[in-house]
Design a protein around this nucleic acid. Sequence first.
RNA 1: ACGCCCGUAGCUCAGUUGGUUAGAGCGCAUCCCUGAUAAGGAUGAGGUCACUAGUUCGAAUCUAGUCGGGCGUACCA
Length: 1043
Amino acid sequence: MLNKAPSNVSFPKLEEDVLKKWEEIDAFQKSIDNREGSKEFTFYDGPPFATGLPHYGHLLAGTIKDIVPRFWTMKGFKVDRVFGWDCHGLPVENEVEKILNISGKKAIDEVGVEAFNNKCREIVLRYTGEWEKTVKRMGRWVDFKKGYKTMDLDFMESIWWVFKQLWDKDLIYKGTKVVPFSAALGTALSNFEAGQNYKDVQDPAITILFKLIDDDAYMAAWTTTPWTLPSNLALCVGPDIDYVKVLDKETGKKIYFAQARLSVYSKKKEFEILETVKGSQLKGLKYEPLFDYFADLAEDGAFQILNDNYVSTDNGTGIVHTAPSFGEDDNRIVKEAGLKLDACPLDNEGLFIDPVTDYKGQFVKDADKLIIRRLKDEGKLFDHSQIVHSYPFCYRTDTPLLYKSISSWYVNVESFKDKLVASNKNIRWVPEYIKEGRFGNWLEGARDWAISRSRSWGTPLPIWENNTNGKRICFGSVEELEKISGKKINDLHREFVDPITFTVDGEEGEYVRVTEVLDCWFESGSMPYAQKHYPFENVKWFEENFPADFIAEGIDQTRGWFYTLVVLGTALFEKNPFKNVIVNGMILAKDGFKMSKSKKNYPPAEDVLNEYGADALRLFLINSPVVAGKDLKFSEEGVKDLIRAVILPLWNSYSFLTTYSHVDGWGPEKGLQKSENQMDQWILSKLQSLIEQVDTEMQNYNLNKVVPPLVDFVGYLTNWYIRLSRRRFWKSENDGDKFQAYSTLYQVLVTFSKVMAPFLPFLTDYIYCHLTKDDATETFESVHLNDFPQPDKSLQNKELELKMDLVRKAVELGRGLRAKHQLKTRQPLQSVTVVAQDKNNKQYFIELNELIKNELNVKEVVVSNDESELVHRSAKPNLKLLGRMYGKQMKEATVLIKELDEETLVSLSSGGTVNILDKELGEEHVLIELSPKEGFVVDSDQGVTVALDTDLNDDLKKEGLARELVNRIQNLRKDASFEVSDKINITLNGDDAINESLKIYGDYLKNETLATNLDMGILPDKSDISESYDIDGIKVNIAVTRN
RNA sequence: ACGCCCGUAGCUCAGUUGGUUAGAGCGCAUCCCUGAUAAGGAUGAGGUCACUAGUUCGAAUCUAGUCGGGCGUACCA
């Protein structure tokens, strides 16, 4: 027998209890061990940085990462899930710098790599406890004990192996990279850091003249950074852009610039156009360097005009001053022209150094003015103005950033770009548009990947360089390094491997490690291999399970983790490393802006969990556009709504079943019965359809399409099935029908728990376990150890579902009519007329007329197939069909169709045709609408018409009154907190109408209220509860006593 | 600044290849029902589909531009 559900439930509290149970029985581990020997479903967890606390974005991703593996577990797969920690990288270093109150690479060198790294190691895991707590509280099952850390020796060794693979494939090279640089900190910043602090600032915008060597003319170039001019090594023009050579009437100089910019400059000066040429024709022309500091680079190809398509004519002159050491594009263009040029005359503090002797020791930005004046004096300044543009500032010192080239190690991604695109073809992206859109575009434009950082806390590059002959050796395992160095190695961090040096027989010089470490993105992209210490361990497992079945992260990872995974998977194995990916959108605050701690525009996750629980939060997140890659405005109310829409009704259903079955001592151990009742059959059929639907959507990773059918089902269950079946549960006789009702509701709740288990892991587990404790066919300790239900075809009855839809429609219309005409449902009416033109439908109404009778509280259901007395017909064109037929005549035809009379419409619906503008139209060409006729209590919708007979005779009135009395007495029972099974004695007195009514309906009233005695007369002095009522003018006093 | 996504009722969102009176839930108002009660039902009010211009017999939907939000990329020289 089932235990009664507790009368007051706290879902957060219930969840905590379920969590405890999971711990006790080790439910998660069991869900994996259970599937030993089954096919595996592989899941990769993207490692978060442990330096911050989890926020909603993590909770969302965590929810998706929990639901999908839970589903596939229930589908029979073994789904191992381990957590990962991203330990290396700038965020950690920044934290440590803050703690040690130092900044920049130089400072780190002073503290020492060892001390610095120790500090990093110390703090990197400081929030893991909080993470674990929150992740678990959300109901996510993931293994923290076996979790990987990117700073583990095994992990780092695999990284080395990955790197060595690329090295052997000749995909690694050393080049220069232009990076944002903070002069105040004396260190390069990541693009991410540089992006933190853009500001609109005013800068000089000058146009300078470069004298051509073989032509008595000048090239006009525009720049906002005069201090980069000493480092100018080239000019760049667009090959397809038109350039004009003009005569400056004031100075007599001949000057080139883009034709499109002529109008701008001619505002200030007078020109005569001499010639027009394409940029491609200017290519290769040589010019005199502006300054002579780097004049000797002319031998290496400097000071010539190059071509590139990135040049625009939006501003400037259409001729770009190119300083390869200070601009990413500049660097690229020069490189692509096959030139090796570099002129970077500044130190780490942003001060000019040799050979720029004139400004030596000056901060470059301060030298701007002097450089401009000098160019002006030399007659090389063509124009001088100001511009306001956005420029990055150091996020820590608020000083303008400089861009400067540094040497860096690259992966030659461009060389296998085609393979990346090919890999992407095999990935299922949810939502789909990301595949060809954002991600596809990003792959198309893939650039070589700079993977080294001049930093301290990371996996060191496994490259040793001979300090004499420059030869390099790359290591791909600890063993190789141990062998050559003769030392035992237990840790691969810099403080351990940097001191290792060695010599090679027959070679001069000593091999010393290059100083850089790997970008932590390289590590996260390597996690499929490194988390398993592949290929040093788990080779067989890896080969069988390599492309992961599933991963999930936010859309911000398009160019992050998703990209690095694909690059490395493709480079190593020419494979896409994951088959399915769910990309979630960003969670914004209620106000539509991003969540911000300082703005306090969102509630702390902990509060939401304590107030509403994880089930509600999970459902809210899953049911939002955020799983379809769109942004979500987070609102607490939304979470609350899901409680109301799903969790509470589900709980109430469970509570309903247990309340009544407890009274009868019913439980599944009595054996489940197959039901003949159509309501039972209907809800079971609906349940099978739901199983199918959820299964299909989950197989397609459409998590956001799952909740609406769940909500619908909850509606069917509570607002139709239970509401209409209540009487069967609480009637006093223990007959077969009652047990069929119990069996049905029991089965529905048990199966429904299984279907919803991946989504609402707590509540479903609670309900499932409490329901099935005595059920010999359900022997599991947790709903999550079950298989996902299979739809039972024998229980599916689509026709019945259709029937019920019609009935529900009719009842809905009938209820609407009662409301509109102020006819209380408690007042019985003589009859309702339902009209169905379709023969099948007519039959359905006849079959299910009992339901309609009860729901609408009428004595009789009249089924008719002629609604012409009740409604008007009118027609509208079926535009989808007719639009193509009529084209421009459509407007005219619409008017004619709308004017068709009822007779014609009736003939159309019985197969007739009508001629409109020379075209023969049949029923399918028009849409016939029904509208209620005046003076009838009638309504019509979607082919169903319902009319109520509102005449009341005496008998109906008496019955109505009896029902009012039942209602009052039931309320009294409830107010007196009687049990549903308590028997009572009633005493009442009142107006004559009461007596008249009870003469006929006294037994009915007793039966309904479980009354053993019904006395008419003066109320007793002592009763459990008594009250006086006025029912539409009829007065009555009632007293109730429990016996 | 550029690329991608988004802008529909007070709020959160649906809206298939262009088609009929633009929908749902919540909230609000009125009424109803109720021994599942932290509920439930019906009805109603509430919309210039961000704006502008175009394509079309017909645009929330397609095109171009403007404005606003998000993500990403950026000293576009």
